[in-house]
Design a protein around this nucleic acid. Sequence first.
DNA 1: CGGAATGATACCAAACGGGTATCATTAAAT
DNA 2: ATTTAATGATACCCGTTTGGTATCATTCCG
Lengths: 131, 131
Amino acid sequence: MKLINRDVDYAARALVFMARANKPTVSVAEMSGKVGVAGPFLRKIMQKLAKAGVVHAVKGKGGGFAMARRPEAVTLRRLIDVLQGPLKLNDCVFRQRICQNHAGCVLRHKIAGMEQRLLAEVEAVTVRDLA
Amino acid sequence: MKLINRDVDYAARALVFMARANKPTVSVAEMSGKVGVAGPFLRKIMQKLAKAGVVHAVKGKGGGFAMARRPEAVTLRRLIDVLQGPLKLNDCVFRQRICQNHAGCVLRHKIAGMEQRLLAEVEAVTVRDLA
DNA sequence: CGGAATGATACCAAACGGGTATCATTAAAT
DNA sequence: ATTTAATGATACCCGTTTGGTATCATTCCG
Ligand code: FES
Ligand code: FES
């Protein structure tokens, strides 16, 4: 039950790299070596980040990616949301059997609480913290 | 990223059923209907619980399973450990690239903290709480 | 002995995750 | 205008995990 998958991992590394590099844009080719991940794969990740507005893409020669927000404004939660879907501990696992009505299910309620607290924690971690 | 998988779910339901039933042993046949899961599947789960000492198995006619401990002594954490492996959020996802030395990796450290707090929470939930 | 229960194991199908390859599009440099 | 360096968009592959079923062996009560 990994909290974050490889996409989030690599994205974090790339963003840290970008935050450190003092350049308007950074190309995937530049990053892939230092980040330790194959180029095409990293590109796919960066594309998702671009679509989500976390980074800004510049096409053409001399182009690349640039952070769209300041490092301290990019939370781990956002990366998780974008790259592996919203954090849901709860898939409503008991169904109408023991607890009858959804709201009354004790376990579900407890897990929901855990989810809330975990969300608050991933929200508190930013790229700035990692750089 | 489910916190618990179906095995844990079904196990919890079965254990609640057993805790409520005032009988020395309960057979899978009795439970499978009420719990809402196919017999053979539930048996496989109960076997794992028996191996782990959570329940006690009685073979032969009139046999079945009985709780080996009181409901309040069976934690959600134990069920997770037995049925889906230890709860590890952390798979050490950054490797010697950005953080260089393992101990210094900020993200890893933060996730480890989250894991600790989450473990404490699942430890606090018992079958008694669900019954 | 015969039936009712668990023990152990093997198997299967679908979903998921991590990763690669390919072609199209854009824009700067020459 | 051509070339070249970059991203955009897809399609595909494959190994692992997961949820679930089937089968046979073993034990114990009556
Ligand atoms: S009914 Fe969905 S968890 Fe109780
Ligand atoms: S080295 Fe393993 S997470 Fe930093």
